[in-house]
Nucleic acid binder design. Structure first.
Lengths: 169, 169
DNA sequence: CGATATTTGATATGGTTCATAACAATTATC
DNA sequence: GATAATTGTTATGAACCATATCAAATATCG
């Protein structure tokens, strides 16, 4: 982990007021830390989530909520267990997440007629509309920033390597 | 968000017993999700941390603890504020982390003579020895797995891109 | 059919991580 | 020398993650 969100700008906040005065204690050497995959990965992930939240501020969607809307749109009619486990979310924790989306009228639970235990998930019209706007924001503000920073080819390569790690590590 | 640790194997657990029976409800389509940087990044990060913990099981070191040891070894004589903020850890949260390392005799707090407010951090002999063993474990078990999966060139490219994101996003 | 086991959504609960406010001791500022 | 700022610390709350358990509904199998 090693990193926080709004808190400290890692290498920045290290050298404080002292610098102006006398000793000017220099910045710390990261050393082997900057070669540690986990360290860099975590840092990058926090930055990306931070940026995502800023881009989505107007829609008030977290990465988790966005991923649920995306998945339900692509797979309407699936139940909570299926959607949650596909996202790696535990069913108990998925309940509050859904409560939130449902209370905002973005998503609806419908009792299944086949299996009256399960709740079928679908996006409401508002949910579809909000998701459409969210996609545009992500594309133009968030993912575009990536292309700008890495270039399309590198961006694709990065995604592929991360997928490989996520699936085969 | 989106993913858990020991819990669910995302795409795996989705299709449960039903498959054997009749309808065999198929796996969900990830769709645009697999193109979302944040989603893939988070997944990869969880996998990497999980693997790190397994590799370090014999030494009982978390990624955060390992990063502290690495940083203190490279920068002996710095105080808590400097080390914590370099790692992006808030000072209040750094206290318990240090308490742990100190109670295991891996690291020591020494009252500074210049500024009697601050605690100078150093590794104990045991701390140095444990860190040396940890480095070997990480190199041979953890990072080696990466080279095996991506190849050295790709591994380097990945690290560089992640650093860029972490620093410039 | 009918007893038993399983699945689904939900609740309660505890652990871990992250963030803020406040405090005493010490030092810096002016 | 009075006031402000810094250091380590405590207390505390929010958010996220994980486990056990429950009632309702369904599946399984004798």
């Amino acid at each position: 982990m090693t990193v926080s969100k709004t808190s400290e700008k890692p290498a920045e906040a290290a050298r404080g007021r002292k610098d102006a005065a006398e000793g000017a204690s220099e910045a710390l050497q990261l050393g082997e830390l900057s070669e540690q995959l986990g360290y860099v990965l975590k840092r990058a992930q926090l930055k990306v989530f931070e940026n995502f939240l800023r881009c989505m501020a107007s829609l008030q969607l977290t990465p988790a909520q966005f991923s649920v809307l995306l998945l339900v749109e692509k797979n309407p009619g699936r139940n909570q267990t299926e959607v949650a486990s596909t996202l790696g979310i535990l069913r108990p924790n998925f309940v509050a997440l859904l409560d939130n989306l449902e209370s905002r009228d973005l998503c609806a639970r419908i009792r299944s007629t086949n299996d009256r235990r399960s709740h079928i998930l679908v996006l409401t019209d508002k949910g579809k509309a909000v998701l459409a706007r969210a996609k545009k924001l992500v594309a133009t503000k968030h993912e575009a920033r990536l292309n700008e920073l890495l270039g399309p080819a590198n961006r694709a390569a990065l995604l592929e390597m991360l997928s490989k790690i996520a699936n085969e590590f």
